[in-house]
Every structure is written in structure tokens, then in C-alpha cells.
């Protein structure tokens, strides 16, 4: 006997929210940055995006067929994973790399744990971490210089990202006694050029991974998502604020409080990570305090990796690390039952 009504325990929320609506809103919000990347790095970006998305979707379907689960490809989550993965690789990577990244992201990052809703880590970042560990040269050498605009000529020759240049310069300035006076003087000139390039950093006329360069377009997309209540303010706000404070205090070369926080916020994948990947609903805490803690943790690890770690950029590892602490944070910040 079947009931005409759905019987379920409270709370009863009537809403038109669905996984599909959320996923396609995020994809829509990401599109402007993608179109800009096509202009910036050339048509190759289109292929990388299509290959990443195609591989993600095919892997998802194959996994669900093999595991005899319902095919849920229309929810758009695999498309989003593929798109985010493509945004997280340099435009000069070989064409097979986004495919490998997507396959690993979906298979190892998501389906083996039970599919959507059960993945402990962001699948796109799992794919990126896999590529980073497997082919570090392809992932850290940016061979395609950004179209037209450059960081005051610094990246014209090497196509280096702002953070690559920053890491190199900072190590010269911090160990000034090991370099010639010429090198040190040159480094401090470059550093002031880097710091003076806010407008390029904000618009995105700099080298970097495909989708991370333009802070402006990513922020417009994020504002759209916030207005639809798909992402909250807590994690991105705390993430960016923590990076701001820590890089201001420790990021400089002339002692404490000499850093340039704006440079650190606008460069690298921070905006992309903070607004689009650290806000993934499955892999982040659900409580108010938990989200604050999550954002602070992401910011802390990002700055530690950027300033003292081996890689120039730490956003992806910071988010992956904090993803893994999510169950603990949720348990720690569980609110008391009212009256209990």
C-alpha cells in the first residue's frame, strides 16, 4: 500500500532548492572567469575545460554503472568538479592532464566513498593534489604568458605567477647576505613592482592557473551565489581575514607588520578557493562556530605554506587539510540542545 503523502520526520522545509539548482548556479557563477581565461591564455583553455568536464562525467557514469547505483549525472556535480579542476591547472599543461585529474578526483575523491554527499574531501582538489604530486613540473611551470597584460614586465619573460616571483624574491631579501648587492637591489625593485600591481591583480591580467587570476570576476560570481544563499559569508570572510592579518604581520621582509596583505589576497587561488571550494556544502562544517573555525584554519595553513612551505601556493592543501578536520570540528562545536 502506498501513501499519497510523503511521511518524514521534522524539520519540514518547503523550498525549491535542489542539488541541481545549486550545482548549476555555481557553474554559472564560475563562467565569467572562464571566458576571461580564454581571452587571457588563448583557445587552449576551452579544450582543457571540455576534457576535464568530459572525463569527470564519463568517470561518474562508469562508476555508477559498475557499482549498480542510480545514474545521477544530471545533478551537475561531476560537471562542477571537472570545471573546478580545469580552473586549478595552468593553461600550458598537456591535454591528457585534466582528464587524469578528473578521473582521480571523481574515482578516488568521491565515488569510492559512496558518491555525492559522502566525500570527505573536495573531489576537484583531490584531483589537483594528485596532479601536483605526480607531475610537479607541469603543474608549477606556467609556459603561456597572459595575453597583453603583464605584471609590469616581470612575468613577460618567465610567465611566472605573482606568488612564484614573490617566493623567489622573498628568499633573496631574507638571506640578503648570501647574494650580491646587485641581486638584492634588483629583488627589492621587483618586490615594489609586484606590490604596486593591484589593478592587474584585481582584474586578473597576471599569470596563474586557468580560473584563479581574475579576483573581480570571481567576486561578481560569488556575490551572485551569496544573493541566492548558496554560499555563506562565514567561511570566505574568515578565510580572507585570517590571510590578511597573518600576511600583514609575518609576510614582510623588514620585521613584523611590514607585509602586504592585499597582494596576498588578490594573488594566487585565494579568491577561487575561499569562495568556491572552501564553501562546498559536503566537506565543510555545518555549525556557526564550526564554519568560523574552518575559515580561520584554511587561512592559517595557506599562509604557513605560502611563507614558509616548499610550494609558492597553499590554498588547495589548506582546504584539503581542513576538509579532513570537518567531522572533528562539527563534533567540537555541536550546539547544546535547548533546555538540555
Amino acid at each position: 500500500m502506498s501513501h499519497p503523502f510523503t511521511i518524514s520526520p521534522s524539520p519540514h522545509v518547503r523550498d525549491d532548492d535542489s542539488i541541481q539548482r545549486i550545482m548549476f548556479s555555481v557553474i554559472l557563477a564560475l563562467l565569467p572567469a572562464g571566458f576571461y581565461a580564454m581571452y587571457l591564455f588563448g583557445p587552449r583553455v576551452i579544450w582543457l575545460n571540455f576534457i576535464a568536464i568530459g572525463a569527470a562525467v564519463i568517470t561518474e557514469v562508469l562508476c555508477q554503472l559498475v557499482m549498480k547505483r542510480p545514474i545521477r549525472i544530471s545533478d551537475g556535480s561531476a560537471i562542477l568538479t571537472g570545471l573546478l579542476l580545469a580552473y586549478n591547472i595552468p593553461a600550458s599543461t598537456p591535454l591528457w592532464m585534466p582528464a587524469v585529474g578528473s578521473i582521480v578526483g571523481i574515482l578516488v575523491g568521491k565515488q569510492v566513498f559512496g558518491g555525492i554527499g559522502y566525500n570527505p574531501m573536495n573531489p576537484a582538489l583531490v584531483g589537483r593534489a594528485f596532479l601536483m604530486a605526480s607531475w610537479p613540473v607541469h603543474m608549477t611551470v606556467f609556459n603561456i604568458a597572459p595575453h597583453g597584460g603583464t605584471l609590469s614586465g616581470i612575468d613577460a619573460m618567465t610567465a611566472a605567477t605573482p606568488l612564484n616571483a614573490f617566493k623567489h624574491i622573498r628568499s633573496i631579501l631574507l638571506h640578503a647576505d648570501q647574494y650580491t648587492t646587485n641581486e638584492v637591489a634588483e629583488a627589492s625593485v621587483t618586490l615594489s613592482k609586484l606590490y604596486g600591481s593591484y589593478s592587474n591583480l584585481f582584474i586578473g591580467k597576471v599569470g596563474g592557473c586557468i580560473g584563479e587570476t581574475s579576483a573581480l570576476l570571481l567576486l561578481i560570481g560569488a556575490a551572485f551565489l551569496m544573493s541566492r544563499h548558496i554560499i555563506g559569508w562565514k567561511i570566505p570572510f574568515m578565510y580572507v581575514t585570517t590571510v590578511f592579518i597573518l600576511t600583514w604581520v609575518f609576510g614582510g621582509v623588514a620585521g613584523l607588520f611590514s607585509g602586504n596583505p592585499l597582494f596576498h589576497i588578490l594573488s594566487g587561488g585565494l579568491i577561487l578557493g575561499a569562495f568556491y571550494m572552501a564553501t562546498d556544502m559536503v566537506t565543510t562544517p555545518v555549525t556557526f562556530k564550526g564554519r568560523i573555525l574552518f575559515g580561520v584554519g584554511c587561512g592559517f595553513f595557506t599562509v604557513v605554506i605560502r611563507l614558509w612551505g616548499g610550494y609558492p601556493e597553499g590554498v588547495s592543501y589548506a582546504i584539503l587539510l581542513m576538509n579532513l578536520t570537518t567531522p572533528l570540528i562539527d563534533r567540537l562545536t555541536k550546539p547544546k540542545v535547548f533546555g538540555g
Binding site: V100, V108, V112, F130, A133, S134, W135, P136
Partner: peptide, 17 residues
């Protein structure tokens, strides 16, 4: 082009899993 991760520790866990 070798998939470096497989000779590192995470590759061992992935393979065994």
C-alpha cells in the same frame, strides 16, 4: 611520463585500498 605519486606514500595507500 611516470605518475610520481605512486612511488610516494599516498600511492601506496591508494594501491592497497
Amino acid at each position: 611520463e611516470p605518475v610520481l605519486i605512486f612511488v610516494l606514500a599516498p600511492g601506496a595507500f591508494i594501491t592497497l585500498g
